[in-house]
């Protein structure tokens, strides 16, 4: 799992690459939550994430809670059709804004 973190105009952009399963989720969750702790707005770039299990959904849930508590916003970028289907099956999809590119996400703030 590769994790890249940068900030643009005070918006945190986290780019993930790889699979988020129960083996990798703990590290992803720790890194993502720590990086987001002093930000209100977070963009999660997932276009190079090929697989997300329920362990990955839990990471999204924890991030959402942390940001929502600060009245911030999480935007997901490049979610694949397959992952989007699982988010829909579990009722996660209604709580996230999803766009195709980081530029579109940046202009949504």
């Amino acid at each position: 799992m590769k994790i890249e973190i940068k900030t643009t105009n005070d918006i945190l952009i986290i780019t993930l690459e790889g699979s988020i399963d129960s083996q990798t989720a703990a590290e992803v969750q720790k890194t993502v939550l720590e990086a987001s702790s002093d930000h209100k707005n977070v963009i999660l770039e997932l276009s190079k994430v090929g697989f997300v299990s329920s362990a990955g959904l839990r990471v999204l849930l924890m991030l959402y809670r942390q940001i929502k508590a600060k009245n911030g916003k999480v935007i997901l970028v490049g979610v694949s059709e397959e992952i989007s289907e699982v988010m829909s099956m579990t009722g996660f999809i209604n709580f996230f804004e999803m766009v195709d590119t980081v530029d579109n996400a940046l202009s949504a703030y």
Partner: peptide, 18 residues
Amino acid sequence: DLTIPLEERPIGGLGVLI
């Protein structure tokens, strides 16, 4: 249960459903 806002959702229980 799946319509409960994520703030109030119990964590877990989704794996078997999926």
